[in-house]
């Protein structure tokens, strides 16, 4: 299993055990997650709107300020405002997460479709290949890719994308196979449609919605992994305001300036919880719709 499959399994169980009676009501958790998602998207698109300062603006006289009214989240070793930096860093973290998810999902769709549509020999081969990739658990595959191509933001993003691809592939394959055995696909087969017509007209439209859920659940994971690589000094580097890189910079001053590490990490946690809650909520609504 991969992290993504665990997430998908949990979402699936939560959706199955929820009451189908009143799916339209928005719960408190969903409401908060929706507002947070909006906030993050605005912060990524127009950071100036929420944080008018300069994320790289140095002010040595106000270095290492604890959280005050003037600097809500405190300042770092060069007097830069942490709140401004975090909000301006949203675009890096979300963009890296989205790009890695796109790579993982794209490759997953290709591999999953090959395995699910092209018969037993291809299915067997792809499955064995995925099984081998699963022997590099968690970040190990990403670390292997980084040792080959060297550290950096682009490599780290690709590495995270590639290491999430097997999880996507296996889920997509399972979904294709379950849609393939439904009555409407059988009917299309009886009507003499070719395999590719069936794939494009009947199967793909029915797997798109679950793919959206998967991508929402997966983007949180991708953001954590990318931030972890930055934290370890293998991804984005300070003074870039990427959240993992900010935490990495704060590590040196952990004994005196806890706010340098605490707030960027808090935003990572908020982003993941938001992605998880929204992903599950979409999952549940689509099933009961």
């Amino acid at each position: 299993m991969s992290d993504l499959e665990v997430q998908a399994e949990l979402s699936d169980r939560a959706a199955r055990s929820s009451q189908p009676g009143r799916p339209r009501r928005i719960g408190a958790a969903e409401g908060v997650a929706g507002v947070l998602a909006l906030f993050l998207v605005v912060a990524a698109a127009w950071p100036q709107l929420l944080a008018p300062g300069d994320p790289l603006g140095i002010d040595p006289l106000s270095a290492f300020q604890p959280p005050t009214l003037a600097h809500g989240f405190g300042t770092d070793e060069s007097g830069r405002d942490i709140y401004t930096r975090i909000l301006h860093g949203t675009q890096y973290s979300l963009l890296i997460g989205a790009a890695a998810t796109a790579i993982g999902l794209g490759l997953g769709i290709v591999l999953g479709t090959l395995a699910g549509m092209l018969g037993r020999v291809v299915d067997f081969t792809v499955n064995r290949f995925l099984e081998v990739l699963f022997a590099f658990p968690g970040l190990l595959l990403a670390l292997l890719i980084i040792v080959i191509y060297g550290p950096g933001v682009v490599t780290a993003t690709i590495a995270v994308g590639l290491s999430t691809a097997p999880g996507y592939a296996r889920i997509i394959r399972a979904q294709l196979i379950s849609v393939r055995s439904t009555a409407f696909v059988e009917a299309a087969t009886v009507l003499g449609r070719t395999r590719w017509q069936i794939l494009l007209r009947h199967i793909l439209p029915n797997t798109l919605a679950p793919l959206f859920v998967l991508a929402t659940l997966g983007i949180g994971q991708a953001i954590v992994w990318a931030a972890t690589l930055s934290y370890l000094g293998l991804g984005a580097e300070p003074p870039t305001a990427e959240w993992g890189a900010m935490l990495s910079a704060g590590r040196t001053y952990i004994t005196s300036a806890w706010w340098m590490s605490f707030f960027p990490g808090l935003f990572i946690v908020l982003t993941i919880v938001t992605a998880t809650v929204l992903g599950r909520s979409i999952d549940r609504r689509m099933r009961h719709a």
């Binding site: 972890t228 704060g250 590590r251 952990i254 590490s261 605490f262 990490g265 808090l266």
Partner: peptide, 17 residues
């Protein structure tokens, strides 16, 4: 849900603090 979302590097630094 929150516990599952905690990144190791952030949890470790917070526990140390």
């Amino acid at each position: 849900t929150v516990a599952a979302a905690l990144p190791h590097f952030w949890l470790a630094t917070s526990l140390i603090v």
